[in-house]
Design a binder for these strands. Structure first.
Length: 281
DNA sequence: CGGTACTCCTGAAGGC
DNA sequence: TGCCTTCAGGAGTACC
């Protein structure tokens, strides 16, 4: 599942392909993904100079000199395949969008579950557009801190795990890294937000950043159906501490798993949470 | 207005 | 073996 580190990795993989290049042709193999493609999408981006490529939350943003922005969200199963010039393209199921580049390279957006989104917007809409207006701070920016988070969540009735998944509180953290960060910080995912001390929030913020930075450094971790932006299969980080490890021992665990049952799996607002009840009180 | 439940979708995995 | 059911999840929407 692409979360912030995976999106960052895809963005960095796209950068060298997009720089000093431009899109000559956009091929839409259907009319929508999760939402319809912007009707003017082709006109907005074809043969326009690419200004820069950025990331906001889990969106990849390609800025063009005509003040248009192409926003790409990978959803759950979206991936980008890059074909070098003259590299043979063999169409696959779920290849929904193809970007042909001036130099002959191709970028292919594939998304089996179609939870992704591709749309364009104007530069000046970045703060008002409904996809971005409500978003909280970037976790790796100066706007994200323990003081901010404690204040933001002081009157929330939800658990800390649910709050971390809420993109109005902090962006980019998905189910996997929320579990991992809470484990690392030693916080029970069921803890109501107001019960967490500032000191614990300090620890949590530190752990969120560590977990995200570690995954970015690893080239973006992923699960089954994620592909690396460089055209190769994505790096599969299977060394999560708790995620998808129900019943197993957590790292450096000294307790008897046959007695404790190991890592527990619970469901919070329809999402799986994995945690160690001994280490996360 | 805050919080919860539901929805979209397909492929993998599990059950019988 | 093979068909059927269940589950995974980001984010928008409906609803109380």
């Amino acid at each position: 599942m692409p979360e912030l580190p995976e999106v960052e990795t895809v963005m960095r993989g796209l950068e060298p392909v997009l720089n000093n290049n431009h899109i000559t042709k956009v091929t839409l193999n259907r009319s929508d993904l999760r939402i319809p493609f912007t009707p003017t999408l082709k006109d907005d981006v074809e043969n326009q100079t690419i200004h820069s490529i950025k990331r906001r939350a889990k969106y990849i943003l390609i800025h063009f000199s005509n003040n248009k922005i192409l926003a790409i969200h990978l959803g759950m199963s979206g991936s980008m395949l890059i074909l070098k010039p003259n590299e043979l393209y063999e169409a696959r199921v779920h290849d929904h969008v193809i970007f042909d580049m001036k130099d002959g390279a191709r970028i292919i957006y594939n998304d089996p579950r179609r939870f992704g989104m591709i749309f364009t917007l104007n530069n000046d809409e970045m703060t008002s557009h409904k996809a971005f207006a409500h978003l909280g701070p970037e976790p790796l920016s100066n706007h994200f801190s323990a003081v901010y988070l404690k204040d933001k969540l002081k009157s929330k009735k939800s658990s800390i795990k649910q709050a971390l998944l809420d993109q109005t509180n902090v962006v980019g953290v998905g189910n996997i890294y929320a579990c991992e960060a809470l484990y690392k910080a030693g916080i029970n995912p069921l803890t109501p937000c107001p019960k967490i001390s500032l000191a614990k929030y300090e620890e949590l913020v530190r752990c969120i950043c560590e977990v995200l930075r570690g995954a970015i450094a690893a080239g973006g971790s992923t699960l089954k159906d994620f592909r690396h932006a460089d055209g190769e299969l994505g790096y599969f980080q299977h060394n999560f501490a708790v995620y998808d490890r129900k019943g197993q021992a957590c790292p450096n665990c000294e307790c008897d798993v046959t007695k404790t049952g190991g890592i527990e799996r619970i469901v919070q607002s329809g999402r799986s949470t994995f945690y160690c009840a001994r280490k996360q009180k």
